[in-house]
């Protein structure tokens, strides 16, 4: 990796009772990159985000960000430091309008209401929510709510953005609309780490992908190299799948 390591997850494990959700996971995210974190359901991806964003403590291991150990730092402090996340299960402020939802994020760096609202409206424009600003967040479609989730995080003006399946549940045309938005966010100077199942978007956006399966990182590399990796194919399709697939291709 040519670029300097920005976020570094080092030997992180997380145990929930008898379940080892994350097991000795280590990976790096380069500054200015769009990095993917993929893997089957239940692999521990969301748990890793919860640990990196301060919502959960790892059982063992550390998270280093810009050379600082941030393990266990509370979420609001991390947000102040410039690390923002979205939630896989969207978490809107249901009773508030879209504008007010985004403004909560914008208030982090703007004390005056007028400034926070102005920032919220600019962010809404970037993610294509300008027409929905006055609607209650609860009244939006799935795609709309995903955009609000993205906009709230973006309004905190982060340096590192963790996106947890912001494309899940969107139809192909909605996915096509959001992909350039994510790229524009990165081009605006934000490093992006994204959990994603929509492979079309992963192949399109990510320079590096880490694959998590049963809590372990089983592969890292370019999107094209990891999808061809037999270990990855087996993780998704079951034991022996890689062999069967290559057999089918040869036949």
């Amino acid at each position: 990796m040519s670029r300097v390591s920005f976020l570094s997850v080092q030997g992180v494990s997380k145990r929930f009772g008898g379940l080892l959700a994350v097991s000795d996971a280590s990976f790096e995210v380069a500054e200015g990159s769009i990095t993917g974190l993929i893997g089957p359901n239940g692999a521990g991806k969301t748990t890793l985000f919860a640990i990196a964003s301060g919502f959960e403590q790892p059982t063992t291991g550390r998270v280093i960000w810009r050379g600082e150990d941030i393990t266990g730092r509370p979420p609001h402090r991390l947000a102040q430091d410039g690390l923002a996340r979205t939630f896989q299960i969207v978490q809107p402020f249901a009773g508030l309008s879209v504008r007010e939802n985004i403004a909560v994020g914008a208030f982090l760096r703007h004390r005056r209401r007028a400034d926070a609202i102005a920032v919220a409206e600019r962010v809404a424009e970037r993610v294509g929510l300008s027409a929905e600003l006055d609607k209650p967040a609860a009244a939006l479609t799935v795609a709309g709510r995903k955009r609000v989730e993205l906009a709230k995080a973006l309004a905190t003006e982060p340096k590192l953005l963790l996106l947890d399946e912001v494309l899940a549940g969107l139809n192909p045309s909605e996915v096509r609309d959001i992909v350039p938005v994510v790229r524009a966010i990165r081009d605006g100077g934000v490093t992006v780490l994204m959990i994603e199942h929509v492979m079309q978007a992963v192949m399109n956006l990510c320079e590096t992908v880490h694959v998590l399966a049963q809590g372990r990182i089983i592969a890292s590399g370019t999107p094209h190299s990891v999808v061809a990796d037999p270990a990855v194919i087996e993780a998704y399709l079951g034991h022996g799948a890689a062999k069967r697939l290559s057999g089918a291709a040869h036949a």
Binding site: P74, P75, Q91, F93, A94, V104, G105, L108
Partner: peptide, 15 residues
């Protein structure tokens, strides 16, 4: 108000 509506979401936004 953000804390009232959703405390986790508020904390994630630096509250």
């Amino acid at each position: 108000v953000a804390v009232r509506e959703n405390e986790s979401a508020a904390r994630a936004l630096g509250v």
